[in-house]
Amino acid sequence: MRTFEYLRPATLQEALGSLSGLANSKPMAGGMTLIPAMKMRLSTPARLVDLGGLEELRGIRVDAAAVTVGASSTHESVANSALVRAAIPALCEVAGGIGDPQVRNRGTLGGSIANNDPAADYPAALLGLDAQVLTTRRTLSAAEFFVGLFDTALGDGELITAVRFPVPAAAAYEKFKSPASRYAMVGVFAARTAGGVRVAVTGAGAGVFRAGVIEAALEEKFSVDALTSLRFPSDGLNTDIHADAQYCAHLVGVLARRAVARILYVGRR
């Protein structure tokens, strides 16, 4: 790790000031991705602004329409939140499947989506539920927020404060873990929402995306059968030492079917 200046602001206002005060300043939430990257000198911020002291980013609120999760909520707190489980159990599953118990104890929702790792789990949930990302400047839809590989619409000095997940009629997340990293080789988040069926895919491409052909087939008939003969195209999907693009495409289909089956036969939500 290179050395850096460390600041731990007590308020959001102070944090924003700290971030804009020096070039190459970076915010840190749980640090579960940033600290390893800094150790390997892949990330070398001059100033680190620790968001851990900010009350404004904490808390989980649930109402009839939505679950709003503060950006600094740990994966563990989401996974084990009775409120979230009652409203969107699939969200608990997503959070409970990230990393390992120790990572979940410190890693946060805001940190995860700000990093936008193409194999992260949360982006699939956000896109699948058409969540809104609340920042210090604006509200972005998930589709607007996730721009590309490790890239988001967040501007310099802009921080995520919370994510608002609309409560779907039903949702499920199916993850096929990459054996070594345990990140999603492919993850499929399927949801029946007020705006229709949404199927978001993580892991398989350069970033989270919606599987339009699957959504269309499920709109026609929300059933496993609707997907049986569907072949998800492999164009643009990843090929690496763990999985080739055709396999990833195949897994998208398999996991989509399994997610649909879970929605239909296991739990209503």
Binding site: Y6, P36, D100, Q102, V103, N105, R106
Partner: peptide
């Protein structure tokens, strides 16, 4: 890579990977 867990300790009652926590925090 914050995976192996040989460094696990408890912070405020929860297990964490001490190789991935800044002391200053």
């Amino acid at each position: 890579t914050s995976q192996c867990g040989a460094c696990v300790v408890h912070v405020d009652g929860r297990s964490v990977k001490s190789c991935t926590v800044l002391a200053v925090a």
